[in-house]
Design a protein around this nucleic acid. Structure first.
Lengths: 239, 239
DNA sequence: GAATCGTCAATTGTCTGACATTTGATCTTC
DNA sequence: GAAGATCAAATGTCAGACAATTGACGATTC
């Protein structure tokens, strides 16, 4: 039960700490692999494994050529979105988080940014939401496309809050649930109901009526949970 | 402007897709490095770099020895916390986000889970909060320790909601702000005020009074923002 | 003088082969 | 049957080489 991590993990941690602490500023060039291997007294391939670990976390980027090397990466929200969403999706799929819990979290977070969105939403956000509502009302739409459009609608709502941190945090919560939602078959009746709620939400946001938005989101949360429950019930009795 | 990613990145993506899609189930053993290098027609070190990338994302774990190898990792909430927090902290520290935005996001999310926490908080959560409040009232406490205790207090509040997805999502928002908060010097007067609000919040949670909790959190949010503003103002005029 | 082209050197990416280390499985011995 | 010795498979590390890329620098040409 030796608990000594690999050399490449130690080196990665050493460099990562330097980056996170701000010791290595953004766009700073790290020493070349050859220099690092001398500094840490290991061979180059070990250094490379450490660097690949950091690259996988978007902490550094590498560039070939004479003036190339490894540079401290400027972490963008886009970079972070991807990791956040895959991690969240994996967490949900691997941890048998039930539909109720995931939905509860999602709508709790969404209601948190609803007041801000009611205050700040731009015409652009409203237009996106209206467009998605129109798509959701089309009859031939597959369940997967309906869910994707649902996610896009809610993303627009969240983005309307104009707070990139909120958008980033909620990207995981909203998008990670898509696979779970895809397991639900949306009947024509349920789609109509959801589209109705979406329209009402868009109307309330346009009117900047925060309390109405909150009430409607609560309705939608309850309805979604009920849908999920009915699907679960339909599966259970088969045993 | 060749846009072909490295071989190790391609291989990592290939395996990652297989894991995320569920094609490789949890605890499944991957082929050995030698076998993978044959399958992908690359040398072993290239395969190893790919595996290290996946290990950095906690997607696989490796084990040495005869029955060892790379196994698809069961991603736990604990594992995800770490990545989430470092990523969020980096996003904030890279100056793309100002203190106001971060605080707004943090308290918006926190208020989202306050009603749930008021309903479900256990005696254990309350005890943790009381203990942190006691610590925060101690006179000799450093600013860093005060902030750390503040984070622990709010973590207990969030955990009280009893929803692991919420806890996971908010871990980033709450803990990532700690470095920013550490830049604030807390006077004795501001500490007293904050401890007072914390006590009132704990009282309201104990009484399961959700609306009071919400009001108090709003107060705390406003006060924290004001503190941050005063610090920023104190710095600006120096130029 | 300016633009174009070639060369060069530094750096990362990949390959090959070897050895060290770990660890469960298996065999041996009592 | 239990304890220890041995083995084999796998990852971890090392050493050295070559390929590929790319900016810098100089040479050539108009």
């Amino acid at each position: 039960m030796k608990n000594t991590p690999d050399l490449s993990a130690q080196i990665a941690k050493s460099i990562r700490d330097a980056i996170v602490s701000g010791d290595l500023p953004v766009d700073e060039r790290l020493p070349s692999e050859a220099e690092l291997s001398e500094q840490f007294n290991v061979c180059r391939s070990t250094v490379r494994e450490a660097l690949k670990r950091l690259a996988a976390q978007s902490l550094i980027r590498t560039q070939r050529g004479a003036t190339g090397g490894a540079f401290v990466n400027h972490l963008t929200f886009e970079d972070a979105y991807g990791q956040q969403i895959t991690t969240s999706a994996l967490l949900l799929s691997m941890n048998t988080v039930d539909f109720d819990t995931a939905c509860e979290a999602r709508f709790a977070l969404e209601r948190a940014c609803a007041p801000l969105s009611a205050k700040r939403r731009s015409a652009d956000h409203l237009a996106t939401m209206r467009a998605e509502i129109t798509r959701q009302a089309q009859p031939g739409l597959s369940d997967e496309s309906f869910c994707a459009s649902d996610v896009a609608f809610h993303r627009a709502l969240v983005d309307g809050a104009g707070n990139p941190v909120l958008s980033y945090q909620l990207a995981g919560a909203v998008e990670a649930i898509e696979p779970l939602m895809n397991m639900i078959t949306f009947t024509a009746r349920s789609r109509t109901h959801i589209v109705g709620l979406h329209t009402a939400i868009a109307d309330a946001l346009e009117a900047q009526n925060a309390s109405d938005v909150d009430t409607l989101l609560a309705d939608l949360a309850g309805y979604t949970a009920a849908l999920g429950k009915s699907v679960a019930d339909a599966k259970k009795p088969a045993t």
